[in-house]
Design a protein around this nucleic acid. Structure first.
Lengths: 248, 248
DNA sequence: CAGTGGTCTAGACCACAAA
DNA sequence: TTGTGGTCTAGACCACTGA
């Protein structure tokens, strides 16, 4: 027959929908503008709301949209570039303008993955310092910094002049050591309930997990697990001699 | 009344389900083992299949599960650490054991984001080199390398001794230049249809997009956009003097 | 072929934010 | 109170894999 056979591969509706919406976002909407609500959009495209939502989810994952319960769906601004390790060989807390210490506790409950890196035995006391990072007025990351108590013997739990002060003390103590090296890993994760609250997202939201290992005196002396909002952040890694290029 | 009030916060079913499944994976399943199918699992937990799937999706996102249509859901091995930029200051193609050139074409169709970095005008000719990365026998990444034709004048389209050979020629030509600097960004994306096929995933699968800018002779001479499977990969960033630490 | 995960529907109710 | 996005259901059919 002369009729055109369908070319195989029936593209899923939500995929096609995502493409259409994406182009509409480029040409017809301004950053911050509110989209029609999901029920209207679904009706307009002649699909079920669940299908429409599948397309919106992808666009949100790519940082094109921002959805807030009770409010609506808005066009997201471009992702912000977040410097990760701009300077070589520095401890956390040194010239970290936008990291803010939150509090610190002493614990022996360390995630297995972190205990592995620290080479600590179950039961070893470890300082847990929490920090949060704010860029352009928005919270973009939370961090859990694990430092074995044996590494910073000067930090006694006896005096407790406030949780935040305790955090600063641990950081200051760390900075007296000579840092020999550092390595990092980046992977995809989903926000724990606690992180989600601080990042103003729902639990399970996609996040970029940056694990940093600090090496001093031939051993791993600290491990930091930082959780960045994946929808709004673009992590940037500069080299010491190319910092000036970042501006280009 | 003495009865226990529900403690507020009704945790979503899929979230609770995810937690339960996650613990079961740790204790009752071995890597590679096949889970019961989704309909059975949903019935066993007394939820709709859609709800069960929401939990499975999260676990797959975290790299705990692997789902294949027509086959089933299996327990995924731990994420593989993929070195990204292990050596300082090298062009692509230098001692890149597991990167494989695929082909190269000359084009003037460059994504706006890349054209921005390259500072090329619309219509400028650019070499597009495709490479793919295989680790432990599995494809983990695809890469598009953009090099303005003006940067590698030795690469003429006249002779075409095979697509892969053309790719090698561009890479070789690049390596004759002195590399001054390099910077990288990492962000979350979703796989384009083409990438998805090469990565053995469905379109829209979550990926980590690594954009590398190569600087030489005071200008951006090349831009590479690498797409890593987010479910199976953990990107590792080492420093030159801490390479030995990676083994720890 | 049978069995799997992937897509899609048309509803319902809930949690939350803003008026 | 109203309207939004978030969760959940109970089905249906499709695309793919492997026997």
């Amino acid at each position: 027959m002369g009729t055109r056979q369908l070319e195989k591969v029936p593209e899923p509706k939500y995929w096609h929908l995502k493409t259409v919406l994406s182009e509409a976002l480029d040409s017809e909407f301004a950053v911050g503008e509110i989209l029609p609500n999901e029920r209207d959009l679904a009706a307009r495209f002649g699909v079920a709301r669940a299908t429409l939502r599948q397309a919106l989810e992808q666009l949100e994952l790519e940082g094109r949209l921002q959805r807030r319960r009770g409010v609506g769906t808005t066009v997201a601004p471009p992702r912000v570039g977040v410097p990760v390790g701009p300077a070589r060989h520095t401890w956390p807390g040194v010239a970290d303008d936008d990291w803010q210490p939150v509090d610190a506790v002493e614990t022996d409950n360390v995630p297995a993955a972190v205990a592995n890196l620290l080479e600590t035995a179950p039961g070893d006391r470890v300082h847990l310092v929490r920090r949060s990072r704010v860029t352009h007025g928005q919270p973009v990351a939370t961090e859990l910094l694990y430092v074995p108590a044996s590494v910073v013997p000067g930090c006694t739990a006896a005096v407790s002049p406030g949780a935040q002060a305790r955090a600063r003390t641990v950081l200051r103590e760390l900075q007296t050591l000579e840092l020999e090296g550092r390595d990092r890993t980046v992977e995809l994760g989903s926000a724990r309930a606690e992180d989600a609250k601080q990042l103003d997202r729902l639990p399970g939201a996609p996040v970029l997990v940056v694990t940093t290992r600090y090496v001093s005196a031939g051993r791993t002396t600290a491990v930091a697990v930082a959780t960045y909002r994946a929808d709004t952040c673009r992590l940037t890694f500069g080299e010491s001699d190319s910092v000036s290029l970042l501006a280009g």
